[in-house]
């Protein structure tokens, strides 16, 4: 049996394919338009939509699960969450269409879309 190489030609092909794929996606996203609406979902249900075009001053939203979001400068970020790793807060502010910030332990996702806000301004339980 031939011994396995450190790195082979096939490895190179796989590597290039993956890097090209990922770089393409990232590049495409880098030129994305600034988004208009931030949609917040908890457990897959939309609980809040924030119009980012009007969100110039810092505005704070506290969700039922204790997560606090702050919208300012046409961007939105996780400001407070009781999750153990705090990945959602590390993500920082997002503002471009297609960008996402998620807090998996709290089942909360914020994503930005380009369109205008629906007639639903805020759903309160």
């Amino acid at each position: 049996m031939k011994e396995r190489k450190w790195i082979s030609k096939t490895d190179g092909i796989v590597l290039c394919a993956l890097v090209l794929c990922a770089a393409g996606c990232l590049l495409w996203r880098a030129f994305a338009q600034p988004g208009a609406v931030a949609t917040v979902t908890v457990d897959g249900e939309t609980v809040l939509q924030i119009d980012l075009q009007t969100a110039a001053d810092a505005q704070s939203y506290t969700l039922e699960n204790g997560v606090r979001l702050v919208a300012e400068d046409h961007a939105v970020r996780f400001a407070e969450s009781d999750c153990p790793d705090g990945i959602c807060m590390e993500t920082g502010a997002i503002s471009k269409a297609g960008e996402t910030a998620a807090c998996v332990p709290n089942r909360t996702v914020v994503y930005i879309t380009g369109g205008t806000a629906n007639d639903v301004d805020m759903i309160v339980y």
Binding site: L18, V19, C21, A22, C25, R29, T100, A102, V104, R107
Partner: peptide, 19 residues
């Protein structure tokens, strides 16, 4: 778990880092 496919937006960055 979050019931939302939009987290897949992390995929390209994770692919690059995974490589």
């Amino acid at each position: 778990m979050v019931g939302n496919l939009s987290v897949l937006a992390y995929l390209p960055a994770l692919l690059l880092f995974g490589v």
